[in-house]
Design a protein around this nucleic acid. Structure first.
Lengths: 95, 95
DNA sequence: TTTGACTTGTCAAATTATGTCAAATGTAAG
DNA sequence: CTTACATTTGACATAATTTGACAAGTCAAA
């Protein structure tokens, strides 16, 4: 399960909303929404923004989780190299 | 220019090797090798390993740079969200 | 059972990645 | 100026991945 998906499900259930309803708002199939919550598919940036709107969440919070998922995916199974790579990245970001 | 490409070029020039020679070792076109060094194309993991071998560099060093490039690419233009996302990622990696 | 919510597998279409080729550019020597 | 060679670039074909829909499946409550 993904950072973003987990949080979306949490928010959705707290408001007693159905997958179907969120999906309708994004104009996508319920199946896709299910996969997004379970981390089987990634949402597009625009979808995350729409979800935040619909679930009354902070857009930035969800986008951060969305980015974290993307990074996690990019790391793949190179977890041993990741710490050093992350440091390089952090240094590069400062510019 | 990419972290990896920059380092490869450095190593290659220090040994007075031609792009053509490195490319031949990887069995790819010289043009592709040029692009890799200039960060216009990403190398595959296997290619990085071969390059390290040929340039007598530490495989781990180059792979770390290669991963850093991948992560940088995943961040894209979400540099503002990256610091928080990185923290989440770091926390997740500990498990 | 039946119903409704959710999940899963599969497929075609769309998008993106990969590597080659040919042409362009740069550079040093004659 | 030419030639010779290294490197770079852009266009392209092909391959690989991603995307979302659809249909069929599971599961729980009534």
């Amino acid at each position: 399960m993904s950072n973003l998906g987990q949080r979306i499900r949490e928010l959705r259930e707290k408001q007693n909303l159905l997958l179907r309803q969120v999906a309708a708002h994004l104009e996508v199939d319920t199946a896709l929404m299910s996969k997004i919550e379970r981390g089987k598919r990634k949402a597009s940036k625009q979808q995350v923004i729409e979800i935040a709107k619909f679930l009354k969440a902070y857009e930035e919070e969800l986008l951060t989780l969305w980015l974290a998922d993307k990074l996690e995916n990019a790391v793949g199974n190179e977890k041993d190299l990741a710490p050093d790579a992350l440091n390089i990245l952090k240094k590069n970001l400062k510019k």
